[in-house]
Structures are given as C-alpha cells and as structure tokens.
C-alpha cells in the first residue's frame, strides 16, 4: 500500500458514492448511462470472485464488498426505482460491442488460462472501456450536469493515481503487471478529453 494506491481507491470510492447520492437525492438518473453502470457491475463481479477463494486484508475485502454493493445499488436505482427518469433513448451504445471483443481478448491475452484468471483479465479490459457508453451519451446529448462531471473526474483521477501507484511499485517492489498497466493507460487516456473540458469549463459541460 502506498499513498497513490490509497488515494486512488478513495477517489474511486468517492466517484461511486457521488453518483449514488446524486441519483438518490435528486430522485433522478437523467444523464446517467445505465449501460456503463451495468458494465461496472459486471467488472466488479468478475474481478472480485476471489473474495470466495483468497483473503488479502480486511481493507481489501471491505472495499470489494462496498464496490460491488454500490455498483448493484446504482443499477437497481437506474433500472428499477427511478426507471421513469432513465434516458434510455440517449443511452444507445451497444454493450455487446465492448463485452464480446473484450471477452475474446481476455481469452487470448492473459497471465494464465484458468477460469478465475480469465475473468479477472476480462474485468480489467472491460473496466478500461466501460465508461464509453457514458461518454457517448454526453456527446449525444451535448451536455453533462455538474455533479455528473464530478463523478467522471473522480473516476478518471482514480485510474491516473493507479498509474503512479504502478510506477511506485515497480521502483520499490519490483512489481509490475503488464495487463493492468496497459489497460490502465488506455482507461486513463479515455478520460483525457474529458479532463480537459472539466478543467477549462469547470462545471457542467455543454459541448
């Protein structure tokens, strides 16, 4: 554990909580891509199956459980509780365009051809592109509310901090995981355009 890893995790947690609270407080999920949220729920489910097989630390287990719980709670709010406010017409990105190629890649490029390892690899690759339906939706509607941009900022910041974490771990622990690093770089790059808008326009984004 280093400072980048910890702040990265907390930034990720902040993003998830911000989104959940936004939907809960406004009683609306307008402008939020349900598809990105389904993909994130799938990411956490396939990655954290190791909750059943190995114990790393109380911190690790707690965070995993919180991430999974929040991901499903968000999907529930969007598709069940506040379904009437869900903007399905603008959330038109096809999930299979991401899930199928990512699944194929996970089978081809992985550390070990075993069930759990392939699901872990799948989750890493899928996470790197899971935000695309959300970004696509913003480009389609041409705007994003302030609180949605805060959500995206923290989500992007989390991955950027993880990149520093991996540099740290490489120098001080000799640890590096090429799959996580490359996918993490792709994921961070996807947010660059958004970061630029967030910094220059500050609040709600209008394209």
């Amino acid at each position: 554990m280093n400072i980048f890893r910890l702040t990265g995790d907390l930034s990720h947690l902040a993003a998830i909580i911000i989104l959940l609270l936004k939907i809960w407080k406004t009683r609306s999920c307008a402008g939020i891509s349900g598809k990105s949220q389904i993909l994130f729920a799938l990411v956490f489910t396939t990655r954290y199956l190791d909750l059943l097989t190995s114990f790393i630390s109380l911190y690790n287990t707690t965070m995993k459980v919180i991430y999974i719980g929040c991901a499903y709670a968000t999907v529930y709010l969007i598709y069940m509780k506040f379904k009437a406010t869900y903007d399905g017409n603008h959330d038109s990105f096809r999930m299979e365009f991401l899930v199928v190629p990512v699944g194929g890649l996970a089978c081809l490029v992985n550390h070990d051809f075993s069930f759990l390892e392939i699901l872990w690899t799948f989750s890493i690759y899928l996470e790197s592109v899971a935000i695309l339906p959300q970004l696509f939706m913003i480009s389609k509607t041409g705007e994003a509310e302030t609180i949605t941009t805060h959500y995206l900022f923290f989500l992007g910041l989390y991955r950027a901090l993880y990149l520093f974490n991996w540099i740290w771990r490489f120098y001080f622990e000799g640890f590096f995981d090429m799959i996580a690093i490359v996918a993490g770089m792709v994921q961070t790059i996807l947010y660059c355009d958004f970061f630029y808008l967030y910094v220059t326009k500050g609040q709600g984004i209008s394209l």
């Binding site: 990720h12 070990d112 872990w120």
Partner: peptide, 10 residues
C-alpha cells in the same frame, strides 16, 4: 504460468 499470489489491487 502465473504464480499463486492473488491480485492484491482493487
């Protein structure tokens, strides 16, 4: 083949 160390990152 990967060693048996579990993935420790989130």
């Amino acid at each position: 083949k990967r060693d048996e160390t579990p993935h420790d990152e989130l």
